[in-house]
Write a protein that binds this DNA or RNA. Structure first.
Lengths: 226, 226
DNA sequence: ATTGGGATATAAGTATCCTCGTGTACGAGT
DNA sequence: ACTCGTACACGAGGATACTTATATCCCAAT
C-alpha cells in the first residue's frame, strides 16, 4: 500500500515482545492451561533471558487479560469462568457489530475477496491450530474499513483474550460447520452492502458462539480448580 | 459488605502501582505534557526507586494508552491529535451507551442519589483538578449496575486515556454549564427509568463533548510538535 | 486441636555493568 | 557552501548478583 521497500524493515523487536508472543501462543493453544503459575526465574531460565524482559512480557500479557498478576503471588494464566466468557462475548458483540456497520459502506471488493479466501482456507485446513488465526483474519478483514484504529485494537485484544476458549469451539466439527455457514451468509450480506442484515447475522453468530462456549465450559469443567 | 476492618486491608500495593498512579495524575493534570520523554533513570532517581518498578509502571501506562513506548527510544507521553480523540469518543459513546442501557433497569435509587451528589459537588467545587474525577464518578455510578465488569473496565480505561483532554473542556465555564445541564437531564431520565431517553441524552452529551474537544485541539494547537 | 514459630520458596526491589541503536555534531572531501 | 561520513555521547534493553518482604507449610510446644 504505502511502501516501496515493502515491509521487512520495521521497528526492532525486543526480547520481551518475542517472549510475550511465545507465551501468548502457548496459552492460546492450551499448552499452558488456565491457572498455571508463570514463575519468572523459571521462564527466564527456560527462555535463556534474564528476569527483566520476562517481567515486561508478563505485564503486557496482563494488560491483554491473558495473564493475572498478583503482588507477592506472581503471574498466573487467567482462569475464566462462564460468566467472564459471556462478558467478553457481550463486549465483542458490541464492538464488532459497530465496526462492521461502519466498515460495510467503505469496504473494498478486494478485501471481501480476501475474506472469502480465508473462509476457503478454513475449509481446507487440517491443522487445528490454524483455524483460530484464520477465523480471526476473516473477521478482522471485514472490520478493516471501519476507520477507527482504536476500535480495531480493542476487537483484536478481545480475540486474543478468548482465543484459547474459541479454539475449543473450533475443534468441534459440528460447530465449525455451522460457523462456516454463518460466515458465508455474513460475507454474502457484505457483498450486497446490506449493513443491517450483515450486522444481524454477525450478532447471531456471536451469540451462538457465546452460548455454545459458556455451556461447554460450565459443564465441561474447564474452570475447575486444580 | 465483606469486611469488618473496612478497606485498609487489601492487596499490597507495589511500588510500580504507586509510581503509575503519580505519573497518571501528573499526565492527566498537564504537569507532564504530551510528547514529554519519560526517562527511566531520571524517574528512578526522582522517585527514589530503582528502574525495575519504574519500567513496570511505564508498561502499565502504555497499556492504558497514556504512554507510548518505542524500543530504543523509550517512553513518551502519548501525543494525541483530533482524530484520535474522535476515536476515543466514538468508542466511549458505544461502550457507555450500552452500559447505561443495561444499567438502567437494575440501578438502585441509592446510586442515583449518589450520582446527584456528585453533580452537586461539581457545582460547588472550586478546585479545577477535582472536576475530572467527579465527572468520571458521576458517569461510572450510572453504569455501575450494568453487570458487565469488563465493560466497566474498558469505560474507565477510556476515561483515563482522555482525561487530560477532558480537563481542558471542563476548565471552560461555558462548557461546564452546558455539560451540567445535560447531566441533570440524564439523571432525570434515569430516575424515570426511561432507558431510551437516557441513552439519547448521553449520546448527545458525548457527541457535543467530542466536537468541542476536537475543535479546541485542532485549532488550539495542542498537538503541535515541540 | 490450636497456636506459634521457623524454614523455604518466590516475588519485589536494588545496584551495577555491558551492549547496541540512534542522534548529533564536527571535520574532511568535493 | 554543501554533502557525507565518522566519532562520540546518551539512553534503552538486557544481564547478573544481591537484599528484602511476604506467603505457605510443617512441626513442635502447649
Amino acid at each position: 500500500m504505502r511502501g516501496f521497500a515493502e515491509s521487512p524493515i520495521e521497528k526492532p523487536k525486543t526480547v520481551a515482545e518475542q517472549v510475550a508472543n511465545v507465551l501468548r501462543e502457548a496459552i492460546a493453544s492450551g499448552t499452558l492451561k488456565a491457572g498455571t503459575a508463570l514463575r519468572q526465574d523459571e521462564l527466564a531460565e527456560e527462555f535463556g533471558f534474564s528476569r527483566m524482559p520476562i517481567r515486561d512480557a508478563l505485564r503486557q500479557l496482563e494488560a491483554e487479560g491473558i495473564v493475572s498478576i498478583h503482588p507477592t503471588k506472581g503471574a498466573h494464566v487467567t482462569r475464566m469462568d462462564g460468566a467472564e466468557i459471556g462478558e467478553i462475548y457481550a463486549v465483542r458483540e458490541l464492538l464488532e457489530c459497530e465496526a462492521l456497520r461502519l466498515s460495510i459502506p467503505a469496504i473494498s471488493d478486494g478485501k471481501l475477496d480476501e475474506a472469502e479466501q480465508a473462509l476457503d482456507q478454513i475449509d481446507a485446513e487440517r491443522n487445528v491450530g490454524r483455524w483460530g488465526a484464520l477465523n480471526r483474519t476473516f473477521h478482522l478483514l471485514l472490520y478493516h474499513a471501519c476507520g477507527n484504529q482504536r476500535l480495531l485494537g480493542l476487537i483484536e485484544a478481545h480475540h486474543n483474550a478468548a482465543d484459547r476458549y474459541v479454539r475449543i469451539l473450533l475443534s468441534s466439527l459440528d460447530y465449525r460447520t455451522r460457523s462456516q455457514s454463518e460466515h458465508r451468509d455474513l460475507l454474502a450480506a457484505c457483498r450486497q452492502r446490506d449493513g443491517r442484515k450483515a450486522v444481524n447475522v454477525l450478532r447471531q453468530h456471536l451469540r451462538e458462539g457465546s452460548a455454545t462456549l459458556v455451556n461447554a465450559i460450565e459443564d465441561g469443567g474447564m474452570s475447575r480448580r486444580p
